[in-house]
């Protein structure tokens, strides 16, 4: 068994995609940054110096402490300073990244599942089903996706009773970003499905009378996943930014569980009064995260493109 697992590890290590990864410094750096941020976000409760959302640990007198300096009243010092309410900026970033990543990944997964399903159906069935789905996609593509997300967010807010708004906000956000993003997946999957369904291995399955759903899932889906992974990765960066944008506009996650976008919104109120650190550090964290994910997506696209080998 050990030899089997060892050879499996070796096989993955020697595969084309890993070879390409090992020979791309940009991909390695981007991968490391993403891994670092993801781990920091995941283990935020253990890493963060304070829990910024536990009122008992907060001291309002600590507010506006500059980075690496002692507070004039309490003498406390924080690496990245504190915000207006005395919360440690480093801790809020760690907790905020957690929410940003959770929303981003969930939204992309939601968009992926929806887009793949509709794309497979449109590509395989063709005819009016295809026409209908693709016209919906065309209409949606003619609006900026952030506008769609705003619209969905607004409608959802109107439908949800006020008592549940706080707790539901994050899920509404995920659905709003996901619904504004499924078109990319559906289009690519539809195109790839149309290519695959005419191939003879699909015909062979049809000759023996295999069920269409089985053909779609077992035969076609594995062969269209390559491009889906690429859009998924780039889509993750876009979803993180979309979440930050919505939160910055004040329609995203509630201030009680702030994401990076919320932190930036809070920070920009104090930029001109000299407390630059409240804005700068969350912005750097968001930039590093989105840029690294994007670079990883670019690399994956090139690595999976046989013409660029």
């Amino acid at each position: 068994m050990t030899t089997d697992t060892q050879s499996r590890v070796a096989r993955v290590w020697d595969s084309d995609i890993m070879w390409s990864f090992r020979h791309s410094p940009v991909a390695i750096v981007a991968g490391l940054v993403v891994l670092l941020i993801a781990l920091a976000a995941l283990f935020a409760p253990w890493i963060a110096p304070t829990n910024p959302y536990d009122p008992s640990q907060l001291n309002l007198m600590d507010g506006f402490t500059p980075p690496m300096e002692a507070n004039a009243f309490t003498g406390n010092s924080y690496i990245l300073g504190t915000d207006n309410q005395g919360r440690d900026v480093l801790s809020t970033i760690l907790y905020g990244t957690r929410i940003s990543l959770f929303v981003g990944i969930s939204a992309v997964l939601f968009a992926m599942v929806l887009g793949i399903t509709l794309g497979l159906i449109a590509g395989y069935r063709g005819g009016w089903v295809d026409g209908l789905l693709m016209r919906i996609a065309d209409v949606q593509l003619s609006f900026p996706s952030i506008l769609i997300a705003l619209l969905i967010f607004g409608v959802a807010r109107g439908l949800i009773p006020p008592a549940y708004r706080e707790t539901m906000a994050i899920w509404v956000l995920i659905v709003a970003i996901g619904l504004s993003d499924w078109v990319q997946f559906a289009r690519v999957v539809r195109g790839a499905t149309m290519v695959e369904k005419s191939k003879e291995y699909v015909q062979a399955a049809r000759v023996v009378g295999a069920h269409p759903v089985k053909i779609l899932i077992r035969h076609i889906l594995p062969n269209v996943m390559g491009p889906v992974l690429v859009i998924g990765t780039i889509g993750l960066a876009l979803a993180i930014i979309a979440e930050a944008t919505l939160s910055f506009l004040g329609v995203g996650v509630p201030p009680t569980q702030p994401s990076l976008g919320t932190l930036i919104r809070i920070g920009q109120q104090y930029l001109f009064s000299g407390e630059w650190w409240i804005l700068l550090f969350p912005s750097i964290a968001l930039l590093a995260l989105a840029l690294s994910v994007n670079l990883l997506g670019d690399w994956l696209r090139d690595a999976l493109n046989p013409r660029l080998r």
């Binding site: 003879e200 291995y201 015909q203 023996v208 009378g209």
Partner: peptide
Amino acid sequence: LRRRFQMIFQDPFASLNPR
């Protein structure tokens, strides 16, 4: 009936699912 007939295709590079 389907069980009793089968088909062999032209292109052996397309008739086997690569995955």
